[in-house]
Design a binder for these strands. Structure first.
Lengths: 200, 200
DNA sequence: GGCTTGACTACACGATCGTGTAGTAGTTTG
DNA sequence: CAAACTACTACACGATCGTGTAGTCAAGCC
């Protein structure tokens, strides 16, 4: 438990600790006792405030989703991002993203719904942007999954880069590498057609 | 335990069952008793053959990695793929891939090493192909992670598509959607430069 | 025939998990 | 002032986990 957490209520500390530990180790990998220790309370208090592990997870799901939508809205509503420094945002948004991805992989309905909403948004954006893939839905789903891939494989990607991508600097680096993937055409349409026939 | 498995030795059945269940549920999510039941043997026999859960996992890591390298070699060594029907290959290679990715995410050294080798291969391929990103290593790491993303998020992607991508047909569909991502430039270099400055 | 060896099972162990229960201290409310 | 409520802790419960131990059974070897 760090300094800033001391001012929070016990309930908020438990929720934040749960988001951190669930995100790092997965839902099964983090026990209620671990979370209680991280929050500096007894394990019974976790149960007192949230009822059960599944209910705690639900609360984390809804909180993390709401916060991420809120952050996204603040980022897109006005061009000038005064007060919203991307560097200052990272320590807040990154754990939330880690948690949501992990919870989603462990079967969360709420987090999966957020993913599906993301696919819808990407599909609509691509259509309005004049991008016309042969499979618009598949294209959008692939893009949405790609956005999360470096988050999920952060340990492996960090090892490949020799740089921790959970830091703001490292995250920025892999983000720009991802943009290069979207910028440089890897295959010509002719090559795609050739592979497509080969697989038939 | 299906029909074809009946001919295998108990040791092979245990290993195959472990790869399947570990791949589906993760290492912690699949117990030795589950694996034994899936293989149709007692839990004691798992211990008899492999010693411990960690040793079983090691054996699965090495077997899956070796098999995947072997399959990859057979696919690339000669142009004519007679005898290696991609459709027939899917039921064999897909569970192996699922297992390796899952084991990697759960901290396997062997599987992570395979990922790093993949990044090396992508980087060398891109260089020989005349692709010159500003961050070649980051570019290769991003591409390698992307290749695995739809595998990891298979449940979510399947839900977004309304089609199970673990089937050969579904896997083919998302594979082609991924190719479209690599074919259609999403951003112009000018846009990339603009975003790059904005993030500074 | 006796003996070893390997495949295999049954069962018990300690640890850890989520959960349930009982109780304390402090504050609020009538 | 007493009752009620809230935040919080300590402790015990059954289940499940990986692991350890003992023993059965069949095949191969002397």
């Amino acid at each position: 438990m760090d300094r800033a957490a001391e001012d929070l209520t016990a309930r908020a500390r438990i929720r934040d600790a749960a988001i951190t530990l669930f995100g790092e180790r997965g839902i099964e990998g983090a026990s209620i006792r671990d979370i209680a220790a991280e929050a500096g309370v007894s394990s019974g208090l976790v149960r007192h405030h949230f009822g059960s592990k599944e209910a705690l997870r639900d609360a984390c799901d809804r909180y993390a989703k709401e916060r991420m939508i809120q952050i996204g809205a603040e980022l897109t509503q006005d061009g000038d991002l005064t007060g919203l420094d991307p560097l200052a945002l990272h320590p807040i948004a990154f754990p939330l993203q880690l948690y949501l991805v992990r919870s989603m992989m462990d079967g969360s309905e709420t987090a999966t719904a957020l993913f599906l909403e993301g696919v819808d948004a990407v599909e609509a954006w691509a259509a309005g942007y004049g991008i016309t893939p042969k499979d618009p839905r598949g294209y959008a789903a692939a893009l949405a999954a790609i956005k999360l891939s470096v988050l999920i494989l952060r340990d492996q990607v960090s090892k490949a880069l020799g740089e921790d991508i959970t830091t703001p600097a490292g995250y920025n680096r892999i983000g720009q590498a991802l943009m290069e993937v979207f910028t440089i055409p890897l295959l010509t349409p002719e090559q795609v057609e050739k592979i497509r026939k080969q697989e038939k």
